[in-house]
Design a protein around this nucleic acid. Sequence first.
DNA 1: CTGAAAGCGCTTACAG
DNA 2: CTGAAAGCGCTTACAG
Lengths: 340, 340
Amino acid sequence: MTQITMKHLAESLGLNPATVSRALDPDKSHLVAEATRLRVVRAAEEIGYTPDPAAASTRRRRSSTVGVLVPDLANEAIINVFRAVGEVLERNDLTALIAESADSPERSRRTLERCRARRVEAIISLAATEADADLMASLARTIPTVLAIRTLDSVKLPTVCCDDVKGAALVANHLADLGHTRMVQLMGPPESATFRNRARGFETAARLRGITPAPTLSAAHATAAEGRRLGERLFSVPRDQLPTAVFAHNDPMALGLIEAARVAGLRVPRDLSVVGYNDTTMARDFSLPLTTVRYPAHDVGTQAGTLAVSLINGGAPPKKPLVFPPQLVVRESSARPPAR
Amino acid sequence: MTQITMKHLAESLGLNPATVSRALDPDKSHLVAEATRLRVVRAAEEIGYTPDPAAASTRRRRSSTVGVLVPDLANEAIINVFRAVGEVLERNDLTALIAESADSPERSRRTLERCRARRVEAIISLAATEADADLMASLARTIPTVLAIRTLDSVKLPTVCCDDVKGAALVANHLADLGHTRMVQLMGPPESATFRNRARGFETAARLRGITPAPTLSAAHATAAEGRRLGERLFSVPRDQLPTAVFAHNDPMALGLIEAARVAGLRVPRDLSVVGYNDTTMARDFSLPLTTVRYPAHDVGTQAGTLAVSLINGGAPPKKPLVFPPQLVVRESSARPPAR
DNA sequence: CTGAAAGCGCTTACAG
DNA sequence: CTGAAAGCGCTTACAG
């Protein structure tokens, strides 16, 4: 099966390959007589011809490719952002090269290295951690780089994210409004700025309401298993020393915690209020419907993609991070604290 | 920032680009004096040079790219298979182009079309449905194509999958062994062969044990929400007409069903046994630990990747599907039926 | 073992 | 508006 080329197509139409190339390129087809263009396009469609992108890449000196880093492919909240990124890239004839870092600095490094080798025109990282800040900064000198979801403190890079400080403050205020005074956070790994921001936002807002949260519980991974494990530990103290509300930094941890509460004989929300973050499908479908924070995944993803495209085209990086607001979603896992 | 090329590197070393090319290509470096090879490799490392893959592709006339279709990026069971596929491809210097079909025929078509346009060297579909069987068959005439997870009846293609008939039979026998006689299935969408096979395997094995399952419940999507919805309907009948065991075709549906059971005041497993499929993390972490079937994701993915590589290299397609055995994992959601 | 030339399939100045 | 030529950055016969 020998590959059909532009030369073949041109010959069969009695045209020069250059004309065929122009006719098939939306950015150049205005240089071609409409009748010719139609003839070419039709013939191409008929035989199912489409120019070889690798050859086009070499000549154009553009890979038409963007590297996208995610920490975890099976994480719904992150994949929702990725989907929006992918849509924007596709619309701009850019192919997404997706890679998973698993939050391992070693894998991040290898993956970014591969992006560079592939001559990606931009990098969009949904997986930034301080551990690879230096590498990101150095890559960003030659490749347009966008951070999404997770910010980086130590290096200034174009960033699109959710206002997690505010999101956590919404939770603190919601709980304070319900009358809770004994609250605790179940924090995700501090490597991700999202969790650091949520921790800070919650703490600050609580204090503004005159509440001092109990010492934060730190999860090694932001998973249901960790939520459950830390819940078991938390609930092992006498009842009257228990907090009346827990803010878990994401939905899986919240659900794991609720399981632990059930096992410990605590009713949610009657004995304990639990709030999650992200509003993933499981927040609605498992356990009792979870009070959580809706993450503006579509906005973050769309803007990150758009920003990358703009940087590729020589646009100036925005001076400040693009920040989208989260939204509190009150469901059934939060209520007034139990009476004393 | 003008790109550094092989020509630059060659000049700086006083060598011909051809020699540099050979030195840097593991398959050709044996043609080069070891001392020369070392000199080249070191210089390349020092300046961070790596040959442009697009240019290599055009000249080699190989894209070094494989298209991988998945139905859902956020589905843990499927992503586990994809991860194994990805590892094999990476080891063989192939880049995975991942695309999501969302089980929409229209998106499958567009996505496969894009694979063809990109000149992928092979296609691995974890998302096959009969709706795109014709298209797959036609593509397979020019592009090595491998089916994984989901088989296709109407067209013979190289396939790697799990023995879902057997997996479901394990469940039926487990429940029969416990003494259940009133069972029902909660079936996933029949578009996916996995669910058709599970339905058949369960039914057949049950009948061999002298049990006729109640009419199967059909889920529109294999999600927790659907499990919950169908559970609510199932549990709305008088208790004495209830089945004593439910086989849900995947873990999310099983967990949704368990939630519905809780709401209906049924205790699992005391009043009702529930078994899932796939052994995803949530089977361990949410709800009570779920009895389920471990899916051989690593084997299926590794073999699918290996098979694709072999086909690319001109290997013969296997005469029969490569089938890996599932394994029953008994946890706490299944027990003896309630006494009458 | 190395070099010089040709060529992969495109796109893009350059002419007309 | 179209063509003929050159060239993108590689790799691969072909020589020696």
